[in-house]
Design a protein around this nucleic acid. Sequence first.
RNA 1: GCCCCUGUAGACCAACGGCAGAGUCGAUGGACUCAAAAUCCAUUCAGUGUGGGUUCGAAUCCCACCGGGGGCACCA
Length: 950
Amino acid sequence: MSDAAENPADIPPFRYTAELANDIEARWQDHWEENQTFRAPNPTGPLAEPDHPRSGAPKLYVMDMFPYPSGEGLHVGHPLGYIATDSYTRYQRMAGFNVLHPMGFDAFGLPAEQYAVQTGTHPRTTTARNVERYRGQLRRLGLAYDNRRSFATTDVEFYRWTQWIFLQVFNSWYDRDAGRARPVEELIRQFEDGTRATPDGRPWPQLSDVERRQVVDDHRLAYISEAPVNWCPGLGTVLANEEVTPEGRSERGNFPVFKRNLKQWMMRITAYADRLLADLDGLDWPEKVKLMQRNWIGRSVGAHIDFPTRVGPIRVFTTRPDTIFGATYMVLAPESELVDELAPSAWPESTKDKWTGGHATPREAVDAYRKFAAGRTDMERQAETREKTGVFIGAYATNPATGTGIPVFIADYVLAGYGTGAIMAVPGQDERDWEFAEVFDLPIIRTVAPPAGFDGKAYTGEGPAVNSSAPDGGLSLDGLDVATAKARTIAWLEREGLGAGAVTYRLRDWLFSRQRYWGEPFPIVYDETGLPVALPDDMLPVELPEIDDFSPKTFDPDDADTEPETPLSRHTDWVDVELDLGDGPKTYRRETNVMPQWAGSSWYELRYLDPTNDKVMVDPENERYWMGPQVDGDSGGVDLYVGGVEHAVLHLLYARFWHKVLYDLGHLSSFEPFRRLFNQGYIQAYAYADSRGVYVNAEEVVERAGRFFHRDTEVDREYGKMGKSLRNVVTPDEMCAAYGADTFRVYEMSTGPLDVSRPWETRAVVGAYRFLQRVWRLVVDEATGATRVIDSTVDDETQRVLHRVIDGVNTDLTNLRFNTAIAKLIELTNRATAISSAGAGTPRAVVEPLVLMLAPFAPHAAEELWRRLGHAESLAYGPFPQADPAWLVTETVTYPVQLNGKVRARIEVPADATDDAVRAAALDAVAAQLGGHAPRKVIVVPGRMVSVVA
RNA sequence: GCCCCUGUAGACCAACGGCAGAGUCGAUGGACUCAAAAUCCAUUCAGUGUGGGUUCGAAUCCCACCGGGGGCACCA
């Protein structure tokens, strides 16, 4: 580069250089912006445009997972998916679709807040700056977004609707009979007219106002509950599971994290577990992602069984009701409230020494064990050794099948959040129970006969039931197979009123509040009863108040017995508010938690459809057009959603959940947000560390004989993420400056299939650069700048190459195979270059289709060349070249002839030769090798090859 | 431990069960140049991770193993 700059005269003046590319790109980016080239017309509303060339055309809605605008800006890995969707949508727009391809920003979140805490800069300032930086970087890449539809989740006009959706969720309940969400007014009406019984059976009018509200609140899809959360006193906030390290400390600051029961907002996503599971089947998603969601939802079928105790029954969930005769003890989760009622003040006679943990009373033992369990992280609980721990609580329950008393333990291998937080332990058929039984010397009864020769411990397989008959003959399972025994047991439980068949899920309700500042405020206030009251829609948005201390109150990092104090709660002039919510002006207290970062991304696909609508979230007609079901049974949704697999579960599950709620309430015609999902791979990079483990600037490392050196020291190469701390970041800005955006785009699309991760290699970018230079040279004379295009006829072979490429590029682009499409364009370019340099110029009939096909990948250069070819209009609306079938057939075909699996000859025959003719020609060709013997078998694969078996 | 994905020239990647190569980088040689860079032209290189099987024919389908990546992991 620098040498070139010293001798600019050596470079032909009209060559496609980085300088020229940058000039062209800036001009076309301005042109597209001024002409709003990529605006997509809506059917109705302010963005409707009946005169638009694509108005009323078949629609295509393509979305990227929008970015969090970090302070670092984009590196070359980030835009891979954006360039891919841009290339795809540019192609489909040219091919005739009305394309919606928007981009926004997921701008609430912790980093901006942390930065604010450190510097005092308001998160809004940082966020706005970062969003602008991202917009600039994306614009520089020539991404064809409809900019009228861009927003950040932090925009008040956006989060107003996030709050509106929260209210929709809050004001709904899940009607299990109807299998859908309904407005709570309908629930209240059912209570009022007596068609639905109140929880305690009293008639509705006898309940006090507060009691009625509590009953209704217990049904809402958004509700307040005491939930075990990750409380981090050092940071003063609760943390999401993914913000906690495997060592049980906070990812930021490395403070201890404790499990605490705290009052939090929850979303009743579990009500939708079945539908979230079932509707996966109809989605065009990677199987891997579907499987991850299925595992996450974790449906298990079994039964609830009540085990009587002196203070009432312990209800367990089991998938193996057939093994009930082998239940020799019970285990409750340490946190279980039942424990407090059950544990007596002294150890019973029968208590074994090893059951007590050395404590004098059950209460002491329980307290000590709870403390122990709370201090253990999930990781420790699951550690390799997995030595079972627990303690007897001094109480007994009765096995309802056998009538025997069985001891009750608490142990942390039973999880409070799953099932009922209690199990019947069947060591004979459960490995975990077997281990526990060994540690605590508990009886083990096999109730499924293992096969002969089985020498393991617990047996979890198929087999006939044994030891499974009640003395009084109430239930007898002996000899039955597992499935029959399960059914028989469930029928018996239901008949006896001891339990019932049941389905449970691993999925938990969604913890929806955060003790932070930079998030959406809840549209909720509390009245004098302490119960939540929804603000009416016309009081939205509830704006984040202006404050200057963004940090939650922090505590001694080791003090688990502290309470979160949110940033908003200190601002009493905002928190305490006088409102008239129907019964005159009263003082209310605002909710001071904010929503989690997932909130905005759980519905943003809907707002792109109608971003300026201030009456409704999205006009139903616009939603139906862009996202509605296309055929009977179709879920509807975005036609293509591209993003990383890291969002396989949480984001995609939350978005599906909200979408279904809004569908149930009649706001949407689609019942899934994303019909098709595609996970792009990652661009990764090498990083180099010296012997001290310190990273060196990757740009300065050279390779010599397979080893790597930074100056004179040898360094170790690692492969992984691109990141500031690894000193291996390459930015799109650098690439644009050195080669232009088109080169960068072509390079990223050509290095491999979209779903494959691959290494970044700066030195290989020049390949894409040379390709564009060659295309440029086909049209523009490098020395004079004159157009080199001629209107001559094209030879047949070139015609065949051209139409084969057109055909292949259409197929490849339709199937997101950008790398092979570009390879074909290079092939065509090479052919065109050959005939161009042999003749007086480049035939227009070849170069025009080439330029059009190049446009999805290198749109600026393509537009520029298109103009130089004499077209006044942008090529953004095509038409895209279509192959002429006449040129796709060849006159002759060359068949390889295999003899016993090896290619021994080639024959050339007319393309329309009959199989018999081909066979004859093939046998003729290998006659010498056959030596006069008749072949045993001859296989002719039309158009492909001939296989002869001697 | 269980499940999923994936192994093709020095690197990245192509190849409806049918001649292993479309394309890119690198390397080597040549053209241009006083020389270099840039550019252009040409050449090189693997028998498809390993071992079996199915088939006329396997990179492709099946089985086992090895390497790489990812998910789940006391979920009763």
